[in-house]
């Protein structure tokens, strides 16, 4: 009985401090110091409608846009997940065959592997710089603009996520597509 009472007293104390106090303190720091990312980096149009989150991939299938990596959950931002297929699975070969066809990849111009492999959460907002350059010709043709103009968008957006630890530069797919469409955001 004493054990129970003591446990309940500690329950109340830890709930108050580790749940109430701690959560409120972390929330307050977030609102004060990083208000944008604390709210999940939401992007809105000039008219106030929401386009998406900078941090979360969204589906792009039209030829005039950069395409993100494949998603096992069709870019469901409210139910994320990976394929969970073994790398030896024939299901992956079938899925990748469709991806290869969509990009029109050939043995002379093979598809970068990161565009064939689905990400862990199905919401990876990035592709590598080389995967972006792989798509330049299609986008330029669909928009009827010079390849150089598309290349410039990549140049402006490429970044190294971990400095000296990450040799491959990445680009954010949604941010590049916003730049291509020249969308005004708030």
């Amino acid at each position: 009985m004493e054990t129970l009472i003591s446990s309940l007293r500690i329950t109340v104390a830890t709930m108050a401090i580790c749940v109430g106090g701690y959560s409120a303190a972390v929330w307050a720091v977030g609102q004060a110091v990083t208000p944008d990312t604390a709210e999940a980096s939401i992007i809105t149009r000039a008219d106030g409608t929401v386009i998406g989150s900078r941090q979360v991939a969204q589906a792009f299938t039209q030829p005039q846009y950069f395409w993100p990596r494949p998603s096992a959950v069709d870019y469901n931002g409210a139910g994320a997940g990976g394929s969970n297929k073994s790398p030896t699975s024939t299901d992956l070969t079938e899925r990748a065959t469709e991806t290869v066809a969509a990009y029109g990849a050939t043995p002379e111009n093979p598809l970068p592997a990161e565009l064939a492999a689905a990400s862990g959460a199905g919401l990876d907002p990035h592709i590598t710089e080389r995967a972006a350059r792989y798509q330049v010709a299609r986008i330029a043709q669909a928009r009827n603009i010079l390849a150089d103009q598309v290349e410039q968008v990549i140049d402006r957006n490429a970044f190294s996520p971990g400095g000296m630890f990450t040799p491959d530069r990445l680009v954010n797919v949604l941010e590049m597509n916003l730049a291509l469409d020249n969308v005004q955001i708030q």
């Binding site: 790398p87 070969t93 990748a96 990849a105 592997a113 990161e114 689905a118 990400s119 862990g120 990450t166």
Partner: peptide, 24 residues
């Protein structure tokens, strides 16, 4: 990724199925 070896996909990086790019 073993499943991609028969397709026109680059073989110069490790297995990326189920991985996120930003971590390296």
């Amino acid at each position: 990724t073993q499943a991609f070896t028969s397709l026109p996909i680059t073989q110069d990086v490790g297995n990326l199925e189920g991985k996120e790019l930003r971590f390296g």
